[in-house]
Every structure is written in structure tokens, then in C-alpha cells.
Design a protein around this nucleic acid. Structure first.
Lengths: 150, 150
DNA sequence: CTATTTAGTCAGAATCACTGACTACATTGG
DNA sequence: CCAATGTAGTCAGTGATTCTGACTAAATAG
């Protein structure tokens, strides 16, 4: 993990730089639109499925403990972005779903993402970004133990 | 910020998955070798230049405040991985350098990185990983403006 | 039916990040 | 030279996020 050794920057560092830039840009964009949430809350909310997600699944997808996920969901709930519902399938479980406000936030986030991708395409070319996406998608099954069933 | 049926997976999420997997693998690998440090400490240590780095520069490179960087450096120092030295050029400044132990950790980290890259190449092909690296490198100047904070 | 697993909570603590205020040294312009 | 301003780093206080461990309740396997 070193920087600047014969111009070989670690792949991990490169991923880190791109990832953080992407994430911070979205948060800044949504904040500017009046949506209030933290980075961690956003990471969790980004993983809520259309039809609702269980807390444990969210935790697993986000790579945090279910305790941490519960803490973040409570905050998102207080902010009016998500709601907890009983899972009709399993009385132990909850379904975390987006509220109307949450859905608006999600839409705004998608637009922000598209804007970032467009900006990146403008500098690197459409082909490069498509390729970047393709490599990362190919990497995912190797690396992401939690595959969402969608 | 979405992950459902028709839509693509967000580029941000893809970056997140790859980045976190890479990082966690390295930390796990080094822990298994007996090196003890946290993710945040590792992120900072990874940015220490061969000839030493200033605290403020490390903070900027890692995207945290110098106060936070100072906190992490103190921990790395206590763990015997880095040391603070006076900067002969500037009496206000320190040079954070790796100790012998720190250098061994850095070497181990580099080997862990190589192993991950090799594993990725095995699944995606050498060409794909080289391309991934190239796109990320091209992205960097767009995205990494090292904005100093506080 | 009992034993085990799974979903989620509560309580407590550690880590890591922030802001604000401060000291000490450096640099610059008159 | 020296006053003004800028930069490097620290101290103090706080907030956010995450963890571990212990727990309840429901589901499931034998």
C-alpha cells in the first residue's frame, strides 16, 4: 500500500479515490436539494429494495452489523425517509421500505449518479466508462458474497 | 442509489463493493500475519511516502482533517509502525516515517495487493484488470483534487 | 415437543471523524 | 528589521458510526 513508487499506485487506492469522490458528490448534491442524511445512512438506504428489505439483509449488503443497521434505520425513520413494517411472511422480521420522501430522495440520487457518470464520460469518453462498469460488474460475483436476489 | 430489476447497478455501488473487498482482504491478510492496525490507520499509513510525509499532507491525501490524522498517527506510533521526526526544513513540521516494522508491514501489504490483483486477473483476465487500472488512473486527476480542509 | 437457528433489540464501549481555539514557526512586504 | 499574515500541528470537546455481548421472540429441524 504505497503511493508513488515508480508511478504504480495501488489498485486499492485508485478504487478508494474514485469511490469516495462518487459518493461525496452524491451526498453534496442531495444536501444541496435539501435532503438531509449522512453518508452511512445513504449507503444503507441505497440498498433498500423496491419491495422492501429486511434489516439483516441490509446489514449484510452494506457490510455492517445488524445492530449498526438498526441504528441507521432508526435515524432514517426519524428523518421520514424510510419506515418499518411487519413482514407478513415472518413475524420476527421487518420490512424496511422507502417513504414517499425516501423515494424522492432515491430518484434525486439516481439523477445525481447519472450526472456524475455523464461528467466522467465527458472526460474519459463513453467507451471508457462503459468498460469501467463492465470490469466492475465482472468483479462483483468474485468479491461480493452477498448477492441481492432483486 | 438503486439496485432493482430493470435498472443497472449504480457505478458508485460497484466501486464501493470492489474497494471494500480489496481493502478488507488486505487488512485480514496482514492481521493473519500478526500486524495490528485498523482500517483507518492502514489508509493513512498507505499514504506515507518513502522519504516521510507531513501530517497535513497525509490528512489531505486521505481526505480527513489534520486533527484526525494526528490521532491516527499517534496510534500508529504507539503500535510501533511509524515515527514522528522533526522536519529539518521546517521547525513547525514533522516528518512521519515508517519504522522498520512499518516497512515490513508495507511490504506485506504490497504482497497482499499483488495477490489480490493476481486473483482478480485469474478470473477476469490480465487484460481486463490492466484496463480497470487504466480507467481508474485516468479518472484520478478529474476526481482527486486534494482539497485541504480546516 | 425440544433444540437450534434466525430476526431484531438493548446496553455499553471503542473508534474515528468533526469544529473551534490555541501555540509556535515561517514568510512576506514595507 | 519587523509587523502582519499564513502554515504546521496540538488540545479539548463533541458527535456519528460501529462494534461486542447479552437478550427476547419467532421459526424451523429433528
Amino acid at each position: 500500500m504505497s503511493r508513488e513508487n515508480g508511478a504504480q499506485i495501488s489498485l486499492g487506492t485508485l478504487l478508494f479515490i474514485a469511490q469516495r469522490a462518487f459518493e461525496e458528490e452524491i451526498v453534496a448534491n442531495l444536501h444541496a436539494q435539501g435532503f438531509e442524511f449522512s453518508l452511512s445512512q445513504g449507503r444503507l438506504a441505497a440498498r433498500i429494495a423496491e419491495n422492501g428489505s429486511r434489516l439483516t439483509d441490509l446489514a449484510s449488503a452494506a457490510g455492517i452489523t445488524k445492530q449498526s443497521a438498526g441504528y441507521l434505520v432508526s435515524q432514517l425513520e426519524a428523518a421520514g425517509l424510510v419506515q418499518r413494517q411487519d413482514d407478513p411472511q415472518d413475524a420476527r422480521a421487518q420490512l424496511i421500505t422507502l417513504t414517499e420522501l425516501g423515494r424522492r430522495a432515491q430518484l434525486a440520487a439516481r439523477q445525481a449518479e447519472s450526472a456524475i457518470e455523464a461528467a466522467w464520460q465527458e472526460h474519459l469518453g463513453e467507451e471508457s466508462i462503459a468498460m469501467l462498469r463492465r470490469q466492475l460488474e465482472a468483479l462483483r460475483p468474485l468479491v461480493d458474497r452477498h448477492q441481492p436476489r432483486n
